[in-house]
């Protein structure tokens, strides 16, 4: 029987599948389908210092093999989360990752401080949300800003720090190196690609925010390429995500250089996807005499 355990920045996961931030809320809804311990971990819905209402609807549009979304970080705020949701999450026997977002560097630092004193296992710094007016992706698109905010948050963060990268950049390897140089313990990538759809009858964008973040199988090849480029540049582990829908996709993303994986959009069509992907992964490993996930990670043989 294959061992699906992985270790990211000193934190052990029972399997490499982590629910991606934004698709999974704070876990309670999917706990109605299966015990959350089937997941290696949960990256919680992005949390901000104060409660946020999010964007007006519509917040979602379907695309060929994917979706656009612009929720705009609707969340109850960090204090509410720590008090009301975290204690329950910590009982679910899975790794809990706090995904933090903010408008300013100070916001991120205060969030990191608050979560450092909480029971979360890791902190994922979201500097790649394309759907908010200030903050978010504006920190994630240049090496200088990625480096500066990573350095500032690192100084306040006592938990393992994951920096979540945007694909909306010219050179992902340089961005990854900047985060690593300033103290990131791991990277997660890719966040969504900025996209747009227009209703041809009304000539209005389908999403009220005009643009939204593209996710799902449509972005998978982009994600594989970027994980490969970043993994070739840095030594810290990478959590790969972007359109993973099947166990074959999971293997492919691991081969490209990922240590662990996040899945999101596939949950819309199949809430049981994490269970099925784990089963497929385990069978693949058994059939190929692979004893651990680390024997797959980064084994790409590029031409």
């Amino acid at each position: 029987m294959a061992d699906l355990k992985v270790n990211v920045a000193g934190v052990e996961f029972s399997n490499p599948l982590i629910a991606a931030s934004g698709r999974f809320g704070f876990g309670r809804e999917y706990n109605e389908f299966y015990p959350l311990s089937v997941l290696g971990g949960i990256s919680c819905k992005g949390i901000t210092l104060k409660k946020r209402d999010g964007n007006p609807p519509p917040r979602i549009a379907e695309t060929p093999s994917g979706i656009l979304n612009a929720v705009g970080l609707q969340n109850p705020g960090v204090d509410h989360f720590i008090e009301k949701d975290l204690p329950w999450l910590k009982e679910q026997d899975t790794v809990i990752i706090a995904n933090i977002a903010g408008n300013t560097e100070e916001d991120y630092c205060m969030m990191a401080e608050k979560f450092s004193d909480s029971d979360v296992d890791m902190i994922e710094m979201n500097i790649s949300c394309p759907n908010v007016k200030s903050g978010g992706v504006q920190f994630g698109t240049s090496c200088a800003t990625v480096g500066a905010i990573t350095k500032a948050v690192r100084a306040k963060c006592k938990k393992p720090l994951i920096v979540k990268l945007s694909p909306n950049v010219a050179n992902i390897a340089d961005i990854a190196l900047s985060a690593e140089a300033e103290g990131a313990d791991a990277l997660s990538m890719i966040n969504t690609l900025t996209g747009m759809r227009i209703d041809i009858n009304t000539r209005r964008p389908i999403i009220r925010n005009n643009t939204g973040g593209l996710s799902g199988p449509a972005v998978f090849p982009v994600a594989v390429r970027m994980v490969w480029q970043a993994a070739s540049a840095v030594k810290i582990p990478i959590i790969g995500m972007g359109g993973i829908s099947t166990w074959q996709d999971a293997v492919e993303m691991l081969i490209a250089g990922a240590t662990a994986l996040q899945i999101g959009t596939v949950l819309f069509s199949d809430p049981y996807a994490p269970v099925k992907i784990c089963e497929g992964l385990s069978k693949f490993m058994d059939e190929n005499g692979i004893k651990s996930i680390s024997e797959i990670s980064g084994t790409i043989k590029p031409w």
Binding site: Y30, Q74, L267
Partner: peptide
């Protein structure tokens, strides 16, 4: 009615005020 994602309350897309 609103454009919907997960259907169970996790993804927060089908917002109504």
């Amino acid at each position: 009615e609103e454009r919907m994602g997960c259907g169970v309350g996790a993804c927060l897309v089908c917002a109504c005020k």
